[in-house]
Simulated scan of single mutants.
Amino acid sequence: MAQNLNPIPPDRFLWEERLPGGCHWSGVIRRGNALRLTDLSGRANVSALFYNAEEKLERYNMADTLKAQHTAYLTRGHALYSDMGHVLCSIVADTAGWHDTVCGVTSAELIRAKYGETSYQTHRNAMYRNGRDGLLIELGKWGLGKRDLVPNVNFFSKVVADEDGCLHFDVAHGRPGACVDLRFEMNVLVVLSAAPHPLDPRPDYAPGDVMLTAWHAGVPGPDDVCRNHCPENQRGFYQTEILFC
């Protein structure tokens, strides 16, 4: 469920950076810190991957995340699980209300077929970037590569299925200023691409900019909304916390 977000206390603020539409970013967010993603134009899509920064073979697992919480999309109260049953991060606040988990990222071939051919030589920073290459560029900075690409989250994008099982992108879902707050329960390598969603039907290549804002949020208490979302999350948080005893 969407909600209003509290302002970040100045004494807990860490850093802020603008991620231009189509571009990519990566960095380590430590346990107890949080990252706010803000859709600045209403056209943002943030394809995200998460890895245990201390053992990168452990990474976000889409299937376990969804089946543990009996959901097909993510919003406030949900935890993002690794393939070892630990909680990498959790969604503590969300004004968007729905984040796609199943559609993957754009490829160079898809972008070329939808929007036309561009290159850095001809268009410089206005070139049309795709999500897969953006994620691979960032993964390469950390010694990772193609084999480390796994199903990702697409923040700010809503995709629904019709009665025949066909997936449809909800163009009306995005709005300027929508935010999602991720609190990190481990030391996590975060890899982001702001390229368009693969099912976005709009004919123009105009992915929205995203503001990244980090702050110290602290660790969750016993009454935490994500911990108590379901019994599976209570077990997941316990399994994660004993790693840091």
Rank of each mutant, 00 (worst) to 15 (best):
A195S: 06
H24P: 08
P198G: 08
G218F: 09
G236L: 04
S41T: 11
G134S: 03
H78K: 09
D200R: 00
L189Q: 00
A108D: 10
C166G: 12
L136V: 01
L14C: 05
E117M: 15
C89N: 10
R147W: 14
G177Q: 06
E232R: 14
I91G: 02
Y128F: 11
G143W: 04
D39I: 07
L182M: 01
G97V: 07
Q121G: 13
A178R: 09
Y51G: 05
H99T: 08
L57C: 12
K158R: 03
A217N: 11
Y238I: 05
P220L: 11
E163Q: 15
P9N: 09
C89V: 11
L14T: 09
N187W: 04
T71M: 02
G145E: 08
T71S: 06
I8R: 11
L14I: 13
P20Y: 04
K146A: 14
E58C: 12
N228T: 15
N125I: 14
N4G: 14
S157P: 03
A195R: 01
R183T: 02
A63Q: 11
E185H: 03
S26P: 01
A178T: 05
M1Y: 15
L243C: 00
L199C: 02
A53V: 04
V102H: 13
V150H: 12
T106Q: 07
E163T: 12
A214P: 08
V210A: 05
G145F: 02
